[in-house]
Simulated assay, not measured.
Amino acid sequence: MYFTYILKSLKTNRFYYGHTQNLSERLNYHNIGKVKSTKAFRPWVIHYFESFETRSEAYRRELFFKSKDGKQWLRANNIIP
Rank of each mutant, 00 (worst) to 15 (best):
Y5H: 06
I6T: 08
I6N: 06
K8G: 00
S9Q: 05
N13R: 06
N13Y: 02
R14E: 13
R14T: 13
F15D: 04
H19F: 15
H19P: 00
T20H: 01
Q21F: 07
Q21A: 11
Q21S: 14
Q21H: 12
L23E: 04
S24G: 00
R26Y: 03
N28Q: 07
N28L: 12
Y29M: 04
H30A: 01
H30R: 04
H30D: 01
N31E: 04
G33H: 08
K34W: 11
V35K: 06
S37I: 05
S37C: 02
K39N: 11
A40H: 12
F41V: 00
R42P: 01
R42Q: 12
R42S: 02
P43M: 07
W44F: 15
V45Q: 07
E50M: 09
E50S: 11
F52A: 10
E53V: 14
T54D: 01
R55V: 08
E57F: 01
E57K: 13
A58G: 09
R60F: 08
R61F: 11
L63A: 06
F65N: 02
K66H: 12
K66M: 13
K66C: 09
K66G: 04
K68M: 04
D69C: 00
K71D: 09
K71A: 04
K71E: 15
W73E: 01
L74Y: 09
R75Y: 12
R75S: 13
A76S: 14
